[in-house]
Design a protein around this nucleic acid. Structure first.
Lengths: 143, 143
DNA sequence: GATATAGTTGATATTAATTATCATTATTGA
DNA sequence: TCAATAATGATAATTAATATCAACTATATC
């Protein structure tokens, strides 16, 4: 999914749910899609605030939820850390290896695992929509 | 791991860390190991309170963390729900299929996935300790 | 057994992220 | 244009988890 595709997906989602396309929503959409990875509500709010001081924290928060619901954002919750969001653009889905010592995390992906997950869900009469795989352990640096 | 083994593991953990074996700790250990699955701090506190009204919420909370750290409890965090704990007794590790409609979840297990996860970690110079796999979707009943 | 050390407890306060509230404003469709 | 209603923004409320701290207690040492 590229940038414009992502915008379309979001706008369609808004329309289909009978919601409205506001200026704030567009600003937040743009800002979010051009951020670096793993941004928190607070991070995004601070970025937006510079050029759009009128937009409130609650609005950013609400719209990040919408971005997630629409499917163009991934939500990353690790432990008790604050929720992070990440645009789903070109890259494939990925999981995380999380270091229990330094709290850093790296992204990984394994097609075989993904396929087995789908099989596992099917075997239980379950329609998989999304998933979260976190492997906790000790990273290279902390060994 | 059976019940007595679990107790040993916990007591050893306590000792090795230079912690102390208190009456409250024993009560909480017993109560936890005899509960049903997926109990919250509040649940366990309420159970304990009946026979041991002197034990405080904070103590139950702290000790559930210890039970988790010692390895005899699994910690289950789903979305924004409160953390649940589960004794790791006879049963093998398992993951969860979580219904996004009715919020129920079922336990599943797949050895192949587990092994691939270990491989994936190794390939990244990462020592896996534990992991969490949650597959979100729609369950049988909610289809 | 007495004593010192330091971990534990229990009641409560604090923290911090998320969500709710609500008056005001803005968008959409008719 | 106008009515209906969603959205916003400031702030309050919620809530789980954690921190605080005086009193207590387990443990090791003498």
């Amino acid at each position: 999914m590229n940038l414009n595709k992502a915008k379309d997906v979001f706008r369609n989602y808004i329309q289909e749910k009978g919601l409205r396309n506001t200026q704030q929503r567009e600003v937040i959409l743009d800002a979010f899609l051009s951020t670096d990875k793993h941004i928190t509500v607070e991070d995004l709010f601070n970025v937006i605030k510079e050029k759009n001081p009128g937009i409130g924290y609650a609005t950013v928060h609400r719209n990040l939820n919408l971005l997630f619901e629409s499917g163009i954002a991934d939500e990353i919750k690790i432990g008790n850390q604050k929720t992070r969001y990440e645009p789903k653009l070109g890259q494939t889905h990925h999981d995380h290896l999380i270091c229990i010592k330094c709290k850093s995390f790296i992204e990984v992906h394994d097609d075989k695992i993904e396929k087995l997950q789908d099989k596992l869900a099917e075997a239980n009469d379950f329609i998989p929509v999304r998933h979260k795989l976190e492997i906790y352990g000790i990273c290279k640096k902390c060994k």
